[in-house]
Amino acid sequence: MSIFALSRVKSPWILHYDTGGCNGCDIEILAVLTPRYDVERFGMINRGNPKQADVFLVTGPVTKRCRERLINLYLQVPEPKVVVAVGSCACDGGVFRNMYNVENGVDKVIPVDVYVPGCAARPHQIIDGVVKALEILSKKTKENIELPEYIKERFPSLNDRRKVLEEMRKR
C-alpha cells in the first residue's frame, strides 16, 4: 500500500448531498458528527468541497432536477472515491418509487459502492456503512477505474472514452 493510500483511509473527508429525500437521513448524518456518535474518531470531517472529498454520501431518491447536479458533483470528486447511498429511498427509491419526478435510486445515475438501508438510517448504520466503504476505498486505485454507464452513453466512441478516463485519473 502506498503512503497516499494509507493516509487516505486514515482521514477520509466526506461530501454530503441531498438529492430530494425527506431530510431525515441528512439530519442523522449531521447527528453522526456530534458528540454522541463522534465520527471524527475515524478521521472524518464533513466538507462542503467536492474537490477535497473521498467519501460521497448521497441521500434521497434523485429527483429529475438533482440528477445533473449529482453527476456533476460525482465527476468533481477526485479518484479514487467511494459512494455511499444512505437511506431506503437512496437505495432503490423506497416509498417514492415510481413517482413521476423521481429516478428510483442513486445507482440509476452514478455507481454506488455501499448501500445503507433504513427509513431513516440510524447513525450506527451510517457509521457502519462508511467504515465498510473505507475498506473498499483502500483497495481502489487511480488505475482500476471503470467508466459509469451514463458516461458510456454520452461518449459512444472508444477514443473519447479513453480521454475521459485519462482526465479522471489526473484528478
Binding site: F96, M99, N101, V102
Partner: peptide
C-alpha cells in the same frame, strides 16, 4: 426551491 419536488400529491391519489 423545487429541487426536492417528487410528486407526493399525485401519488396520494393514484398509488
Amino acid at each position: 426551491i423545487a429541487y426536492v419536488h417528487r410528486g407526493i400529491e399525485k401519488a396520494l391519489t393514484t398509488m
